[in-house]
Write a protein that binds this DNA or RNA. Structure first.
Length: 188
DNA sequence: GTGGGGATTTACT
DNA sequence: GTAAATCCCCACA
C-alpha cells in the first residue's frame, strides 16, 4: 500500500484520483473516499490560490498532507488535502465518501439525513466528520490512509465553479451511490 | 471601510 | 425547480 506522502508529493492531477478508496478518520467517524476534485494552484482560475497567498489559503502553500479547511456560504465548511512540493499551492477537495465506522456519531451530527447522504457533498462530509476551521492545517499522517488502487475511475467537470468550469478535474468511483450529483454554477 | 461573491444545502411550491 | 439561509474573505478605495 502506497504511503500518503508518496502519493501527494506529485502533480495534483496525478495525486487526486489516487485518493479514491482511501480512508479518512476524524471525530470518531471513518470515511471511504468516493469523490474528489483537484485545484491546481496559480494556473487554475478556479483555485483559491489563483491570486496568490492569503491568510485563508496559506495551507495550500505549505507541505503536502495537511488539511485546508474553509468556510463558505455562511454555513458550510469544505476540506482539502494540500498536495505537491512545498511552495506549489495545489490541493484536493474531499467531496464525498461512504461512512464505514462511527455511523451513529455521523447520524447524530447530520440530523435528518439518509445514510447515503451523510457525507454526500463537501459540506455534508465536513459536518459528518465534525470538521471546522479549528482543524485547518492539521497533519494528515495516520488520519488519511490510502487504500488499494481503484479501477475504472471516472472524471468530469468540477461542481459549482463559475471559473474554469470546463476543466475535467473531478474524479469519482463510478456507480457508487455516495457520489454527489453534478450541479453547474448558477448564473447571476 | 465597503461590497460583491462564494469549491453548498435544505425546504418549499 | 427555485429560493433562502448566512458570514467570512478579499479586492479595492
Amino acid at each position: 500500500m502506497a504511503d500518503l506522502i508518496e502519493i501527494l508529493d506529485r502533480p495534483v492531477l496525478e495525486a487526486a484520483p489516487l485518493l479514491l478508496g482511501a480512508t479518512f478518520r476524524h471525530g470518531g467517524v471513518t470515511l471511504r473516499l468516493t469523490e474528489v476534485e483537484a485545484y491546481d494552484g496559480p494556473n487554475d482560475p478556479g483555485s483559491h490560490a489563483h491570486n496568490g497567498r492569503t491568510d485563508r489559503n496559506a495551507v495550500m502553500f505549505g507541505p503536502p498532507g495537511h488539511l485546508y479547511v474553509y468556510f463558505t456560504y455562511g454555513m458550510h465548511h469544505c476540506c482539502n488535502v494540500s498536495c505537491g512540493p512545498e511552495g506549489q499551492p495545489s490541493a484536493i477537495l474531499l467531496r464525498a465518501g461512504e461512512v464505514v465506522e462511527g455511523l451513529e456519531t455521523a447520524r447524530a451530527r447530520r440530523g435528518r439525513s439518509t445514510d447515503r447522504d451523510l457525507a454526500r457533498g463537501p459540506g455534508r462530509l465536513c459536518q459528518a466528520l465534525g470538521i471546522d476551521r479549528d482543524d485547518n492545517g492539521i497533519d494528515l499522517r495516520g488520519v488519511l490512509e490510502p487504500g488499494p488502487p481503484v479501477a475504472g475511475i471516472s472524471s468530469g467537470p468540477r461542481v459549482g465553479l463559475r471559473k474554469a468550469a470546463d476543466r475535467p478535474w473531478r474524479f469519482w468511483i463510478p456507480g457508487d451511490p455516495t457520489v454527489s450529483r453534478y450541479v453547474a454554477a448558477k448564473p447571476r
